[in-house]
């Protein structure tokens, strides 16, 4: 199967006031459709940077990134924004919902950016909320939801537009262990039932028991690529 995400000798070096800090050093990686993959590693190992580069949020210092058949590391800002909008779903550590919008409106936000008519986007967003088991919370604002509920809304926002891949940067880091585990199980269920490709970063070893593949990073390098569980 052709990879949906690919990194080739991917390198990222941050420069701040003349100080160079390497975040990724020649990472090679392929993710095929339908995978449920975790990027594991300690803080500062480059997990978030790798997700940002694969998700067209940032540009590498060297190397290549690919989304399907398309090389993305050389695209301009507008083209990368277009790819993020149409092909990639994002979930962030701090939920990052828009506080003045309801859960339904947050879930529909990416669809609104895509220009989907209101009725259609509300229907799709509601379906995403139902899939995540929070349809009854559709009209609540983020400040009326628990952390776990907010992160489910964030996942619903990522899924509602039916992207080719969902990238999640430490999605459970702000949740208690029970809520974190529940979210990962939900994501895994969506992966298994709908074939949605998930790639997420975590430093919580308990969550790694639920994934099919673990890519371990240390100091910006892939030190292990393990296929586990039911894969």
């Amino acid at each position: 199967m052709k990879p949906i995400l690919r990194a080739v000798r991917l390198t990222k070096v941050y420069e701040n006031e003349g100080v160079r800090t390497p975040a990724l050093q020649g990472v090679d990686l392929e993710i095929v459709p339908g995978e449920f993959t975790a990027i594991a590693g300690p803080s500062g190992s480059g997990k978030s940077t790798l997700l940002h580069l694969l998700g067209c949020l940032d540009k590498p210092t060297a190397g290549e990134t690919w989304l399907g058949e398309r090389r993305t590391d050389q695209l301009d800002d507008v083209s990368r924004a277009h790819l993020r909008l149409r092909e990639i779903g994002f979930v962030f550590q701090a939920y990052n919902l828009i506080p003045v919008l309801t859960a339904l409106e947050n879930a529909a936000f990416v669809l609104e950016l895509q220009g989907v008519p209101r009725e259609e986007r509300n229907a799709k967003a509601m379906a995403a909320l139902e899939a995540l088991g929070i349809a009854e919370l559709a009209h609540r604002r983020p400040n009326q939801l628990s952390g776990g509920q907010q992160q489910r809304v964030a996942v619903a926002r990522a899924l509602a537009a039916q992207p080719r891949v969902v990238l999640a940067d430490e999605p459970t880091a702000n949740l208690d262990s029970k809520a974190g585990l529940s979210l990962i199980e939900l994501m895994k269920k969506l992966n298994e039932e709908r074939g949605i490709t998930f790639l997420f970063s975590t430093h919580d070893p308990r969550l790694l028991e639920h994934v099919k593949r673990i890519i371990r990073l240390e100091d910006g390098r892939v030190v292990a690529d393990e296929r586990v569980g039911a894969a």
Binding site: G55, L57, D77, V78, A81, H82, R84, L85, R86, I88, F90, F92, A94, N96, I98, P99, F109, V110, L113, Q114, R157, A158
Partner: peptide, 16 residues
């Protein structure tokens, strides 16, 4: 700023 960052991240271009 963070909120605008998220809006950009999920696909809004700078004109939007």
């Amino acid at each position: 700023i963070r909120e605008f960052g998220v809006i950009l991240a999920v696909g809004a271009d700078r004109w939007r």
